[in-house]
């Protein structure tokens, strides 16, 4: 039995305030041992992603290898949190990462546009789960959301959640298409109330993708829900996070908004493809004391 749309009201967002607050997280000085720890943590939170029309089993195999062994020249590095692929590639990925603790996430529900009938989306989700996906990344129907059909969006998320079974559900809001921070807050609340385990900023297919103010607004939605119910919700900024420095800024923001408990890959992820290599590059710099080169790091 699907849940019914609850009555709630989202607070309005002070855009200038959110931007200034987000900018302040970038001013922390994190050096030496703390930096190394942050970089390793961030690497452990990466959802290594390939979502191209040109994906092949071979490419996914490479990606999984990268997830399990980010850099052979640096023993003791953590694995990434997950690999993120299309449903048709789930089985390939699942077989490769079996027993490693690395999860397989599948984007479902007519990713990236979400423009498909609901029953197609549910079948897409069930297919991904039956192939062995541990996590499902769904997209909301932005068109419906923007035309005010919030109940439709809510019901859809609830239906997908049901189709997920044991798989954890990440709900992609595609914040770049929602327009305002008020909308982003409202969409976050709807997703959380409808049963999302994670809320995620973007598909990575359009620009702007994840930004710090947007992520802050979503983190605050998670925090408010936690204060009200005691239930933790995860957060995944995706797209546009390419440098280790940015990643550390995000970690600071999570730490100072939600607290220490969220600083694990159980509750926080980075959706990215090139971030992992940049993190490795900076880790090597910290270890060897000289600036490194991508020539010495495997491309994923």
């Amino acid at each position: 039995m699907a849940k019914t749309y609850p009555s709630f009201s989202s607070p309005t967002i002070d855009q200038v305030g959110a931007e200034e607050r987000a900018a302040r997280f970038t001013k922390r000085s994190i050096k030496k041992a703390a930096k190394v720890q942050a970089l390793k943590l961030a690497l452990n939170m990466v959802d290594l992603t390939t979502l191209e029309g040109a994906d092949t089993p071979g490419k996914v195999q490479q990606l999984c290898q990268k997830a399990l062994h980010p850099h052979l020249g640096y023993p003791g590095l953590p694995t990434t949190a997950a690999v993120c692929v299309y449903p048709t590639m789930v089985r390939v990925a699942k077989n490769l990462v079996k027993g490693s603790g690395v999860k397989v996430a599948a984007v479902a529900t007519a990713f990236p546009s979400g423009q498909a009938p609901q029953d197609v989306k549910i079948r897409d989700t069930k297919y991904a789960v039956s192939e062995g996906a541990d996590e499902v990344d769904m997209v909301i129907s932005r068109g419906k959301f923007l035309s005010g059909e919030y109940e439709y969006v809510y019901d859809e998320i609830a239906a997908i959640k049901e189709a997920c079974g044991k798989a954890r559900l990440k709900v992609i809001l595609e914040t770049g298409e929602l327009g305002t921070l008020d909308n982003i807050r409202k969409a976050s609340d709807i997703a959380i109330l409808a049963g999302a385990d994670f809320i995620k900023t973007s598909t990575g297919k359009i620009s702007p993708a994840a930004t710090m103010p947007v992520t802050l607004v979503m983190l605050e939605a998670i925090r408010d829900y936690y204060f009200k119910t005691g239930t933790m919700i995860g957060m995944k900024p995706a797209g546009g996070i390419r440098t280790a420095k940015q990643a550390v800024h995000y970690l600071v923001m999570v730490r100072e908004t939600l607290g220490q408990d969220w600083l694990t890959n159980q509750w926080f992820r980075f959706g990215a493809s090139s971030l992992a290599n940049n993190l490795i590059l900076q880790l090597i710099k910290q270890r060897d004391g000289v600036y490194g080169s991508m020539d010495y790091i495997s491309k994923d």
Binding site: V290, Y291, G292, S293, M294, D295, Y296
Partner: peptide
Amino acid sequence: DHFATHKD
């Protein structure tokens, strides 16, 4: 030293 050691 930075010019001489930078690996890139």
